[in-house]
Design a protein around this nucleic acid. Structure first.
Length: 273
DNA sequence: ACGGATGTTCGCGC
DNA sequence: CGCGCGAACATCCG
């Protein structure tokens, strides 16, 4: 499920589970997620290291261990970090494992192998293309309406596509972009540089609101998940609500295709320019 | 069975 | 250089 909110939840989980803990054993499956290191170097670099910091930028996670060892991680479309206690079985599609010094085990599971796992000196990981080319992170960096205006400036492309361009603004994906645009009452195909000041301000608020609300929502889920899981209802405002009534105006939510992705919007609340 | 899925990267045509 | 598009990746779910 990973866009910025889920990656942030993952970061908090890892921090809570493992900050200050030592990795007593590490393994990784040889697959295309593993970048620039073999299963042997993965193990050698991480074994014996204590986790000192876990940070997020956009949809990337960077864990720092003592001895200047880093683990850079992208969850792709399906990736997750899960915790298991001693004796519990590994999750499906576990691709990497960190055994901690308190008998907990952390699993990186990823069914589709979309994503990335890289180890190495922290500075080298920070300089790698994925991390170093990220745009402004709305929850981490200084993110004001004027910063957003400069992100959108000079872009004729549809505003939704620009919002999903990780090199410009990092962390929004197909869901969060749709949600932010609905909150801001802006049609997704509007050329980015056609937004006026008021619209940019609404979009700025919409981005922060959907990210914060989704994070809060996911935290609530975690608690409920411990018990039993029925199917949670769609927590989003327009995403995947095609054919249903817009919760704001009652008109029918539409779906169009943009750059190969389903794009949901309300034709009344988000009129085409 | 078929189509679509929360991501990124690459090649192609313009 | 930049943009839109489609494909590719491998699996799951409805």
């Amino acid at each position: 499920m990973p866009e910025l909110p889920e990656v942030e939840i993952t970061r908090r989980n890892l921090e809570r589970w493992a900050l200050g803990r030592r990795v007593v054993e590490a393994q990784a499956e040889v697959c295309r997620l593993l970048e620039g290191c073999t299963a042997a170097t993965f193990r050698k670099r991480l074994r014996g290291r204590a986790l000192e910091d876990i940070e997020r930028r956009g949809k990337y996670l960077l864990a720092t261990f003592d001895g200047d060892v880093g683990l850079l991680c992208h969850l792709g479309m399906n990736g997750r970090w899960l915790r298991r206690h001693a004796g519990e079985h590994a999750p499906q599609h576990a691709r990497a494992v960190l055994h901690l010094d308190d008998d907990q085990t952390l699993f990186y599971a990823n069914a589709r192998l979309l994503g990335r796992l890289a180890t190495g000196p922290v500075d080298r990981l920070r300089a790698s293309p994925g991390w170093s080319s990220l745009g402004v992170d709305p929850l981490r960096d200084r993110f004001t309406p004027s910063v957003l205006r400069s992100v959108l400036a000079g872009r004729r492309a549809p505003v939704k596509n620009v919002l999903m361009d990780q090199h410009r603004i990092a962390g929004l994906g197909n869901i969060q972009a749709a949600e932010a645009l609905w909150l801001a009452r802006i049609h997704p195909t509007t050329p980015a540089d056609a937004l006026d000041r008021r619209e940019v301000e609404r979009l700025h608020r919409g981005i922060l609101r959907t990210l914060r609300d989704t994070i809060a929502e996911s935290e609530g889920d975690e608690i409920e998940y411990v018990g039993e899981g029925g199917d949670a209802p769609n927590p989003f405002r327009v995403y995947q609500h095609e054919g249903e009534a817009c919760s704001r105006c009652g008109d029918t939510v539409m779906r169009i295709r943009m750059a190969g992705r389903s794009t949901f919007f309300c034709p009344s609340c988000q009129p085409e320019a």
